[in-house]
């Protein structure tokens, strides 16, 4: 045991080894934080006023009011649910060919570019902005909402399907091709069994997302429970708002639970 070891200090090595870079990152982060908080404009008087209202809202969760606006709530919920179902079915159906076309290993280049373009456009904009445009085109109501959700579904599902298709086991495709299969036979025997279970699982997941989104796009007039919710906030009817939010949470929980079961059975 060498005596020289005694008294040697030890500090853990820093995460970023280069000291210049380390201090630049810390300094930059600190500067940003100072600027961001400095330019934050808050009307504290209004916030303090809001605390009372905030408490009223929290209290409303203990005593949600389902009855006084039940007609509007149920109408909005049915609109949301029907929109969700139709949008998911339509979106998934369209995403199948788009996804196939966007898989580089299966589609020729021009088709690939077109389909990737569709996916990029669909994924770029938040749903609510798309909803504004579709409301403008189709008029107020759930049809515009349905088209919005279907549009978003296409981008989501087609992208994931294309990625799965690009990752398939080529050996299985080779084997079926070696047996003399045509292109459609190739799809059904070699490709479909590899991607279908996950695709169905994702569709169920997208159904869940679409329902949550359907609660939002009503704010801009695209139908569904969002409009009812918005109105209840405007009227400060927190009991009704709480009731709607609880319904949404309940339905999402149920959807997650059942989609968990469905996905387990598919595997």
């Amino acid at each position: 045991m060498s005596a020289g070891v005694t008294g040697q200090r030890w500090r853990p090595p820093p995460l970023i080894v280069n000291p210049w870079l380390r201090w630049a990152i810390y300094g930059g982060g600190g500067l940003y934080l100072a600027l961001a908080l400095g330019t934050l404009q808050v009307n504290w008087g209004r916030v303090a006023e809001g605390l009372v209202r905030g408490w009223a809202f929290v209290a409303a969760f203990g005593n949600p009011d389902f009855s006084s606006r039940w007609g509007e709530i149920s109408e909005g919920m049915i609109e949301s649910l029907t929109m969700t179902v139709v949008a998911t079915v339509v979106g998934v159906a369209i995403s199948l060919p788009v996804g196939l076309g966007a898989a580089r290993n299966l589609a020729p280049l021009p088709v690939y570019l077109v389909c990737r373009g569709i996916i990029a456009v669909s994924r770029s904009f938040p749903e609510i902005i798309v909803a504004i445009l579709f409301v403008k085109m189709f008029g107020f109501g759930p049809l515009a909402g349905m088209v919005t959700l279907a549009f978003a579904t296409i981008g989501f599902m087609a992208k994931l399907l294309a990625e799965d298709l690009e990752d398939i086991d080529e050996a299985q495709v080779e084997a079926v091709r070696a047996a003399g299969a045509s292109w459609p036979q190739l799809m059904v025997y070699a490709v479909q069994p590899q991607v279908l279970p996950r695709f169905i699982g994702l569709s169920v997941y997208r159904l869940d997302i679409n329902f949550r989104e359907s609660a939002v796009i009503g704010i801009v007039g695209a139908g569904g429970i969002g409009a009812t919710l918005n109105t209840s906030f405007d009227r400060y009817e927190f009991g009704t708002s709480a009731a709607i939010l609880l319904l949404i949470i309940g339905i999402v929980m149920m959807a997650e639970y059942s989609s968990g079961i469905i996905r387990k059975r598919l595997q």
């Binding site: 404009q41 009307n43 609660a215 919710l229 906030f233």
Partner: peptide, 25 residues
């Protein structure tokens, strides 16, 4: 976790704007 996940941030914003007024906060 479920409650937070079920409700879109736009709805949270709607709620908070009603409660504490419009703004970045």
């Amino acid at each position: 976790i479920v409650a937070s996940r079920s409700i879109n941030s736009l709805i949270w914003a709607l709620l908070l704007v009603t409660v504490m007024g419009p703004g970045v906060l």
